[in-house]
């Protein structure tokens, strides 16, 4: 994945570039809005990570300008302003995701990876059928089977699994789950999401030799066959 980090704080930019490279991605850095805009316009990036407050051209203007040119590269906005209205403004300007500072790198990584994957998937139509190992989910019949056996899920559990399967192999964080399954962006302060995930896990992996729903320490969850 090629990504461009547009961030004026050189410390955090250096840290981000290094961390993304360690994860095997190609990360470039622009220190101000205009440079960032020029580099993004050159194209070729899978995801842009844009700080909201930038010298020479602020983040939202940059995104608006790109969108005005029909550039659909996914943009994740980083902002010290983590409030509801800021999020709305950011997404309205054309951002695809919004992460308030301070953030955990694992959260940023998970979100950026999902954004880049979504872009690749957007080219083809959303599949109606997901399959991970012997776990299958049919979005039309709303039927879930594991090794051919039906699994009965509550509507919300179904949506949870659907989201996990759509991003199978990726790490999804608790806040991503809260945002995408419950459509809330707040901080639940307790382990509410964990409880739902462990219930889903109990239904999916009970009596199975190979667990599919993995807990990724310090980051979140991932639906995949654990590599040994």
């Amino acid at each position: 994945m090629r990504l461009l980090i547009i961030e004026d704080d050189s410390d955090s930019a250096t840290y981000l570039v290094k961390a993304f490279r360690e994860e095997g991605h190609v990360a470039d850095h622009a220190a101000d809005g205009l440079t960032g805009y020029a580099m993004a316009e050159g194209g070729g990036y899978d995801v842009l990570v844009v700080d909201r407050m930038l010298p020479r051209m602020d983040g939202l203007s940059l995104i608006r300008s790109l969108r005005a040119q029909n550039d659909t590269t996914p943009v994740l906005i980083l902002s010290a302003l983590g409030q509801v209205d800021d999020r709305v403004k950011g997404l309205r300007a054309g951002g695809d995701d919004y992460l308030p500072k301070p953030y955990a790198f694992s959260e940023l990584l998970a979100r950026v990876e999902v954004l880049s994957r979504r872009r690749a998937a957007a080219a083809s139509a959303e599949p109606t059928h997901y399959k991970v190992a012997d776990l299958e989910l049919d979005r039309l019949t709303r039927k879930v089977t594991r090794a051919g056996e039906d699994i009965a899920l509550q509507p919300r559990e179904f949506r949870l699994l659907e989201y996990l399967m759509r991003n199978a192999g990726q790490v999804v964080t608790r806040t991503m789950l809260l945002e995408n399954v419950w459509d809330y962006h707040f901080d639940p302060q307790t382990n509410v999401i964990d409880v739902h995930v462990s219930r889903l896990r109990a239904k999916l992996d009970k009596g199975q030799a190979v667990p599919l729903l993995q807990t990724v320490r310090g980051a979140g969850y991932s639906l995949r066959v654990e590599a040994r």
Binding site: P188, N191, V195
Partner: peptide
């Protein structure tokens, strides 16, 4: 919200 917390 209720559904979110019921499990907990």
């Amino acid at each position: 919200v209720a559904e979110l917390y019921e499990a907990l």
